[in-house]
Lab assay of single mutants.
Amino acid sequence: MDVFMKGLSKAKEGVVAAAEKTKQGVAEAAGKTKEGVLYVGSKTKEGVVHGVATVAEKTKEQVTNVGGAVVTGVTAVAQKTVEGAGSIAAATGFVKKDQLGKNEEGAPQEGILEDMPVDPDNEAYEMPSEEGYQDYEPEA
């Protein structure tokens, strides 16, 4: 019985440690998101679009440190934060509304985080759909 109880105690310690790591990862992701939003706020009209992409990228980098179902929630929060940063930029006159959601080359930025393969159960990952990809044929 002692062996059984000791095993359960060790398992509990492992769960607590994993929860603490997840909590730490979420806190880091939130900190990076805040950094990115402050970065966007300090940019001029020309830099705002690039700044919004930076927020998304920093958040995406930190999301990889967070495991399990938390990833889905962090990704949703990050996307809403990026959308909010863009709205703030438009409201303050840093950028025109028609410039939001495009990178410096004018290509749409939507789907940055949505296409990231995420499995809350950590069982399997699927690649994003290939609808947006084109076949590449090298020139002879």
Rank of each mutant, 00 (worst) to 15 (best):
G47R: 04
G106C: 06
V49L: 13
G51F: 15
P128V: 11
K34I: 13
A89Y: 12
D115I: 09
E104C: 15
D2I: 05
K60G: 13
Q99G: 02
V66D: 01
Y136A: 05
P128Q: 06
E28I: 12
E130G: 11
M5E: 01
G36S: 06
T54M: 03
G31E: 11
E105M: 15
Q62S: 07
K96Y: 12
E35K: 08
Q24W: 15
G106E: 03
V37E: 00
Q24S: 07
E130T: 02
S87V: 13
A140W: 15
A107K: 08
E130M: 08
T81E: 02
K12V: 12
D121N: 09
E137T: 04
V40E: 00
P120V: 02
N103F: 10
E114Q: 10
F94I: 12
E123M: 07
Q99N: 08
K58T: 07
K80C: 10
E131C: 04
K32V: 13
G93M: 11
L38E: 02
A90G: 00
K97F: 07
E35W: 09
V70Y: 11
Y39I: 03
A78M: 06
M1K: 15
V55G: 01
D115W: 07
A53F: 03
Y133K: 12
E139G: 06
D115G: 06
D121R: 01
T33P: 00
L8V: 04
M5V: 10
Q109P: 01
T81L: 09
P128G: 02
Y39D: 01
A30Y: 04
K6I: 03
K58Y: 15
T72W: 09
S42W: 08
G132M: 08
G25E: 03
K60R: 10
S87P: 02
L38I: 02
V37S: 01
E114P: 10
N65I: 05
E28T: 11
A27S: 07
F94R: 01
P138F: 09
A124V: 10
E20G: 12
F4P: 03
V74K: 01
T81Q: 02
E46I: 06
F4V: 07
G41W: 14
G106N: 03
S87Y: 13
V63T: 04
K12E: 00
I88Y: 05
V118G: 12
E104V: 15
G106Q: 14
V66T: 01
K43Y: 12
V16K: 03
V49G: 05
A78K: 01
E20I: 03
K23W: 04
A91S: 03
M1A: 15
L100T: 10
G25N: 08
A69R: 08
A69H: 09
K32R: 05
V71E: 02
P128H: 08
S129G: 10
K58E: 02
L100I: 12
E46V: 09
E57I: 09
E130S: 04
Q79C: 09
D115N: 08
E57C: 08
I88S: 03
G84N: 07
D135E: 14
T72S: 11
A29W: 12
V82G: 04
Q109N: 15
G106W: 12
V37W: 10
V52Q: 00
G86E: 12
E137P: 03
V77Y: 01
Q79I: 13
V15L: 15
K45S: 07
E130V: 07
V26E: 00
D2V: 07
K97T: 13
G51A: 08
G93F: 15
K6T: 10
M116L: 10
A19W: 12
E61A: 06
P117R: 08
A56Y: 09
A76Y: 13
V71D: 01
G67D: 01
E131V: 11
T75H: 09
E110Y: 11
V70I: 08
G101A: 04
G132F: 08
K96Q: 13
D98F: 07
G67F: 14
E83S: 06
V63E: 01
G84T: 08
P128S: 06
S9V: 11
T75V: 06
N103I: 04
A27C: 08
G41H: 08
P138H: 08
Y39P: 00
T33L: 14
G51D: 01
K80W: 14
K34L: 14
V74S: 02
M127I: 11
L100Y: 13
Q109I: 13
E57K: 06
S87K: 09
K10C: 03
G93A: 06
T92S: 14
G111Y: 03
V52S: 02
Q99P: 06
Y39L: 06
L113A: 06
S129P: 11
V82R: 12
N103R: 10
Q134I: 12
M127T: 11
G47M: 02
Q24R: 07
Q134L: 11
Q24F: 09
A11R: 00
V48H: 00
G7P: 02
G47I: 14
V3N: 12
G93V: 12
T75S: 05
T72V: 10
A90N: 09
V48R: 00
A124N: 14
K43D: 00
A11I: 07
V63M: 02
V95M: 03
A124D: 07
D2W: 12
K12G: 06
V63H: 01
D115P: 12
N122E: 07
K58L: 14
N122P: 05
E83C: 06
T64D: 06
V16G: 03
H50I: 14
L113T: 04
K60I: 15
E137Y: 06
E83Y: 08
E131K: 04
G41D: 00
Q79M: 03
S129C: 06
D135V: 03
D2T: 00
N65F: 07
T59W: 11
G51L: 14
E57D: 09
G93I: 05
G14L: 09
K80R: 10
A11S: 00
Y136L: 11
G67Q: 12
M116D: 03
D135C: 05
D2L: 03
I112C: 01
T92W: 15
I112A: 02
D98G: 04
E130I: 06
S42M: 13
K102R: 11
A89D: 05
V118Y: 07
V82D: 03
G86C: 10
G41C: 13
K45C: 10
T75W: 06
D115S: 02
G84A: 15
T72I: 03
D115L: 13
V66S: 01
P138D: 08
E110R: 08
T59C: 04
E139C: 01
D98A: 13
K21Y: 11
K32E: 00
V48C: 03
E20P: 00
P117W: 08
N103G: 06
G132K: 11
A19Q: 01
A30R: 02
L8K: 00
K58V: 14
Q79E: 13
M127N: 14
K10N: 10
A78D: 02
V15S: 00
V15F: 03
E131F: 07
T22W: 11
V40R: 02
S87Q: 08
L38V: 08
I112D: 06
V49H: 05
G86D: 07
V15W: 14
T22M: 04
Q62M: 05
V63A: 14
Q62L: 13
A19L: 11
F4M: 00
Q62F: 14
K34Q: 12
G51S: 07
T64F: 12
L113I: 04
E57F: 03
Y39N: 04
K80L: 11
K80D: 02
A56L: 04
A17R: 07
S42E: 08
H50F: 12
K96C: 07
E123V: 07
E126M: 12
P108A: 15
L38F: 03
K45V: 14
S42F: 04
T33C: 10
E104R: 14
K6F: 15
T75F: 12
E105A: 11
G68P: 14
A90I: 14
E28C: 09
N122H: 10
L8T: 00
G86R: 09
L38D: 01
V40M: 06
V82S: 05
K43Q: 03
T92P: 06
T33E: 00
A85E: 01
T72M: 09
G132R: 03
E137M: 03
N122Q: 03
K96G: 10
Q134P: 07
D121S: 13
Y125G: 11
K45P: 02
T64E: 06
V118K: 10
Y136H: 09
G101H: 14
A91Y: 11
S42R: 03
M5D: 00
L8I: 12
K6S: 09
